[in-house]
Design a protein around this nucleic acid. Structure first.
Length: 324
DNA sequence: AATTCACGCAACCGCCCAGGC
DNA sequence: TGCCTGGGCGGTTGCGTGAAT
């Protein structure tokens, strides 16, 4: 007999989709207190949500640095391969894709990749009936094949190793040794609390275009400030690696708001100016501008960091035609 | 134009585990 | 040592949306 759900004892506990107002309350609270001690969140914020719901909303949606949108072929390759190696250990797989949540990966697997792999398996079992497509799918083998390689090659996968976050750890004598879970890294753990000091990460309300633009601009201004501070304090490369996920998330967020709301850049700037501290707004605007134009100092390093990671995975995935 | 169907995704549920007492 | 609690994870559900009929 399992424990009763944490929400059963709550009278009037709200369920269902979160409203922008609830998001703001939650983000504001976490901004002040940091994530953790979820039990106290509904008590202290007045949110009519159970602690689990708050934690899930944060980790799966509100947390900074979450990349939304389509998965790249590289990401697909990573997921397919890690799923073959680790099974449905979505949290472990997500640790290799720090911009994606385990929930996202799980959903993407269930809705896309599972079918894709199944098709490939069918093609493999009936090779005469299908052409050989030149795409990601063609360079990927079935999960069974990947797993077979994984388990037959001691250099490839060492099941005896482990880390604190994941029960499994990948090892590769060539390039996979640099492909380690990123979530528990020192960098991310030191960065995230720092970002919390600055970020107001608000999901824009579709109903209020100008206010959502202002909210987005304000939150991204604060992110830019955090990024600036990090770049001043640390080596650019590590700072870039630290905030890259946050940057991309914010950038996506901004682009979404801009495209959705059709706000002018001046409106965004004005909103950001109101949200931030005036004396540094100009500096940060240029950061923001450059960033939106993909020309920010450090952005290249950030992109390179992520690309490097993906290239590792790509090389890892594509170098051997049997694999990907 | 109305209805049905399929799909994607956010959120919930139930279980497990670790830490505190 | 055993119980309790909070946090985490994987599986599943249900709703919204767009495509198809």
């Amino acid at each position: 007999m399992g424990r009763p759900p944490c929400c059963d004892n709550g009278v009037g506990v709200k369920k269902g989709p979160w409203t922008p107002e609830e998001d703001i309350i939650l983000v504001s609270y976490i901004q002040q207190h940091g994530p953790g001690n979820w039990r106290s969140v509904p008590e202290n914020t007045g949110l009519m949500r159970c602690s689990k719901s708050c934690r899930l909303r944060w980790t799966n949606y509100l947390r900074p640095g979450i990349k939304r949108g389509n998965f790249t072929p590289h990401e697909e390759g990573i997921i397919i391969h890690l799923q073959a190696l680790l099974g449905n250990k979505w949290a472990a797989i997500a640790s290799y894709l720090p911009q994606r949540t385990d929930n996202d990966i799980k959903n993407y697997w269930n809705t896309h990749l599972k079918k894709k792999v199944k098709r490939l398996q069918q093609q493999q079992s009936h090779p005469d009936h299908h052409h050989h497509h030149h795409s990601f799918q063609t360079t990927t083998s079935s999960s069974n094949a990947a797993a077979a390689v994984a388990t037959s090659s001691p250099n490839y996968y060492n099941p005896s190793s482990s880390n604190s976050n994941s029960s499994n750890h990948l090892h590769n004598s060539h390039n996979l040794e640099s492909m380690q879970p990123m979530a528990p890294s020192n960098e991310s753990t030191t960065t995230i609390p720092k970002l919390f000091q600055f970020q107001t990460w608000m999901k824009p309300s579709p109903a209020t275009s100008s206010s959502s633009a202002a909210a987005a601009a304000g939150s991204c201004y604060k992110q830019a400030m955090a990024m600036q501070e990090l770049q001043e304090e640390q080596e650019p490369a590590s700072a870039a690696a630290m905030v890259s996920s946050s940057i991309n998330g914010c950038k996506d967020h901004m682009c979404t708001v801009i495209s959705d709301d059709k706000s002018s850049s001046s409106e965004m700037m004005a909103a950001a100016a109101m949200a931030g501290h005036g004396e540094t707004a100009t500096t940060t605007f240029s950061l923001l501008e450059n960033w939106l134009l993909d020309d920010m100092p450090g952005q290249a390093a950030m992109s390179a960091a992520m690309d490097g990671f993906l290239e590792i995975s790509a090389g890892y995935c594509c170098a051997d035609p049997i694999m990907f």
